[in-house]
Amino acid sequence: MDSPDNRIGIVAVVSLLMLSSFSIVAVAQNSDAGEGSIAWGLILCLLPFMILALFGILWSLAYPALFIWGAAFSSGDVEKSHQDAISRRMVSREKAGKEILNTINGGYRGDVSSSGLVHANGVFGPSHWQLLIAFFNNLVGGSVTSFQQVISAGRAEVMQRLREQAEAQGWDEVINVRIDTSSMTPQSQNNKNTVRGVEIFAYGTGIRYD
């Protein structure tokens, strides 16, 4: 089975083997050579840890910058994408002459010629700034506006994707539309550095009239 998972495993194992054999060769060489090769052997052995440390340094530099970027632009971006989805919705509604999505189960017209499954999805997450705002909102109680904006903008976007998908596949209408919302974050929170996102998934049955 030539799946990408297998290939990734092979590449990882081969690179680890190469790294260890290089370091062994380097250490073996230094027994008859001078002190310079001992240093090289050490460097080769420590290379993975050095790369990890480099990532740590980069992360500690990048995190505050990204956090400030998020604080400055995230709520504006959410608002913009919501407006964008609404305007695209108007365009596709004009093109079809009506709203093509509905939640009626079963064909209510007799002249259906073909049908099939249509689905669209998207994963949306609040920025860390919005998480912080939500934390303070939770202390006071009431509606958590920052989350609500993210979710409703995401849902509008996914519904629009479903409309566009139905248009692209040539369906006249999509019946029995269902919207699922599921958290990408696992329930057991051992580590804090998990990605927080909500997946919105919309699916329905596209039908075509004669």
Binding site: L66, F67, N121, G125
Partner: peptide
């Protein structure tokens, strides 16, 4: 793969759509 996970983690700080995970779920579905 890990690279895309790291990018998704970075994207999560800024907020917005996590395109890597959208693709992942689309493919798996």
């Amino acid at each position: 793969h890990l690279g895309k996970d790291i990018f998704a983690g970075l994207r999560n700080i800024v907020g917005g759509e996590l395109t890597q995970y959208t693709e992942l779920l689309q493919e798996s579905r």
